[in-house]
Every structure is written in C-alpha cells, then in structure tokens.
C-alpha cells in the first residue's frame, strides 16, 4: 500500500493568502482613497502618486511620472494570478488525486487544444503558456470591476502595453527568417499595396488596444449613466415618501446588476478570448512556416554533413 501524499497545509494557506490579499488590498485602497461621488461622475484612473504634480498634463509627452490605480491594480492582479497558479500546481503527482490538479490539467488541456486548433501543431509547445497568460490576465483584470475597484483593462495605457507586447511577438515571428523575407511579406503585391500593408501593420496594435479598452470602458460608462438615470427617476417618482425613505433610490436595485452580468462578466471574458484569439491568428498568419522548416532542416543537414 502506498500512502497518497497530500500537499502540505501551511504552504497552501500561504498561497491562498497570496491569492486573496492583493484583492483585499485593492478594495481597501479604493475605499480609503475614493472621493465621494454625486450624480454622474465618469473618470479615468485615479492618480496615487505624482513625481511632479505641477506638470502640464495636457501635453501628450509629459515629463511627469505618475502612479495610477490602474497600474497598481494590474500589479495586484498579477500577484494574485501567480498565487493561483502556484496553488493549483502545488503538490502535483503522477496520477491526479486532488481536485486542484484536475483543474490545472483541464486548463492546460483546454489551452493546448485552443492553440492547436488555431495555430497548428507547430506552435503548441511554444505558445500555450503565452496565450494562457494573456487570457488569464485579461479575464481577471476585467473581473476586478466586480469588486468595485477600477478595472485595469478600462485604462488605455494598460491595454496599450499589452497590445505593444503582442505586436513585438508578431513582428519577431514574422522576421525570424531574416529581414529579406520580412520585407517581402509587404512588397509581394506591388508598391501601392505595400504602403497599405505597412499602414495595416501599424494599425494592428492600435486596433487591438482600442477594441479591448473600448469594450470595457463603454460598459463602465453605460453602467454609470443607467444608475444615475435610475437615481433621478426614483427621486422623481418616490420623492414624496416621508423622511429617509424618500432619499433611498429604490429603483437602483436590480437593473444595474443585470447590466453588470453582461458588461462585466460576459463582455470581459469575451474580450479576453478575442484578444488572445487575435494574437494567435496574427502570429500564425505572419509566421513563414514553410520557409522556416526548409531552413531548419537544411541547417540540420549541413551540420550533419560537417560532422
């Protein structure tokens, strides 16, 4: 009889704390620093720290260094996801006995299946981890709004950073067979089309960033508008009630929650899926697979011959 080894409890508690504490920190920071809101207030990320508060923010290239809650929340999300991954993979065994190992294996299998379906077998090994990271970060960042804090994905700077990273990956894979092949992908259809191709290439990160940011941001704007409208409506309809009863916006109960199911849960998950899907399609579409395999096998042959 072999005794099943269970993962140690103390490490588990530490990892769960690593998952939960960043989220609690985000909520507490938000509660402590949020100013009281009246009516319709739609604002961007709050600035926690500014190295040079007098700098002119209306300029595009400001010399100021600022720390906003979008940045802080996205780092907290990253710490929390790291804790989740460590927790799921803690105490792995050859034959899965724990629930968390089943969950971890399910995630890995699903992501590998997604990558295989969209990019082919060649990229599964190298790309599953990256796609899963993009997907998880995007989903959890969007879901931060369920805790009532500023979701990092509704800040253009955060999503723009992701899109820039993905653009670098795409360009790296396109140019992996040398600059000649990279330039040929633009100029293969003539000079006029080449200019359009260059514009389309530059537009890739912009459109990816705007798509993700615009969807999450529009949900936040609509939620604020609807709840402000309901507040006004209940003050008109129910304002005659005596005392405190007249001041409570009863009509705000219910409808914003239904909107939140769509805009926070569905739209957030969908945008994460689309972002990672586009990453996969752009990379596998731009990667010169045949050329790469030809060179690779040629290099192997020549090294064999040299030996």
């Amino acid at each position: 009889m072999t005794e099943k080894k269970r993962p140690s409890r103390a490490v588990d508690v530490l990892l769960i704390l690593m998952m939960v504490l960043p989220l609690i920190t985000a909520v507490v920071l938000n509660v402590l620093t949020a100013p009281a809101k009246e009516g319709i207030v739609i604002e961007g990320a709050r600035v926690y720290y500014s190295a040079n508060p007098d700098a002119d923010l209306s300029q595009v290239f400001s010399t100021d260094f600022i720390l906003t809650d979008a940045q802080i929340n996205s780092w907290l999300v990253m710490i929390s996801i790291t804790g989740l991954c460590l927790f799921l993979t803690h105490g792995l065994q050859e034959h899965a006995v724990t629930v968390r190992q089943h969950i971890a294996e399910w995630i890995v299998e699903k992501v590998e299946g997604l990558v295989r379906a969209n990019m082919g077998d060649f990229h599964v090994q190298s790309f599953s981890a990256f796609v899963c990271a993009v997907l998880g970060l995007s989903v959890f960042s969007s879901l931060m709004s369920l805790l009532g804090v500023f979701a990092p994905t509704s800040d253009l700077s955060v999503v723009g950073g992701w899109a820039l990273l993905v653009f670098l990956v795409i360009t790296g894979y396109k140019a992996c067979c040398g600059p000649r092949i990279y330039v040929r992908t633009f100029t293969s259809d003539g000079a006029v089309v080449a200019a359009l191709n260059v514009i389309g290439e530059v537009a890739t990160p912009i459109s990816m960033a705007f798509r993700h940011y615009g969807n999450v941001m529009s949900g936040a704007v609509i939620a604020v508008l609807v709840s402000a409208f309901l507040q006004w409506l209940s003050s008109v309809l129910l304002g005659w009630l005596p005392g405190v009863l007249g001041e409570i916006p009863f009509l705000q109960v219910g409808l914003p929650a239904i909107l939140s199911v769509y805009f926070d849960l569905f739209s957030g998950a969908l945008q994460a899926y689309i972002f990672s899907m586009l990453t996969m399609l752009y990379v596998s579409g731009g990667f010169p697979l045949e050329e790469y395999i030809k060179r690779h096998s040629h290099a192997e042959k020549s090294s064999v011959l040299a030996a």
């Binding site: 961007g44 705007f210 798509r211 615009g214 969807n215 941001m217 529009s218 704007v221 969908l270 689309i274």
Partner: peptide, 24 residues
C-alpha cells in the same frame, strides 16, 4: 461569428474612443 463580430465592431469602437476623447 463572434470573432467576426468583434472585428466588425472595431470601427464603432474607434468612434466611441473619439467621442469619449471629445467629451472628457
């Protein structure tokens, strides 16, 4: 279809971003 819808939605989102910039 969802992928295609997301890509078709891009122009609308450009307009939304322009509108948000103009308002705020």
């Amino acid at each position: 279809m969802i992928m295609g819808c997301a890509i078709a939605e891009t122009t609308g989102l450009y307009a939304l971003v322009v509108a948000i910039l103009l308002i705020f």
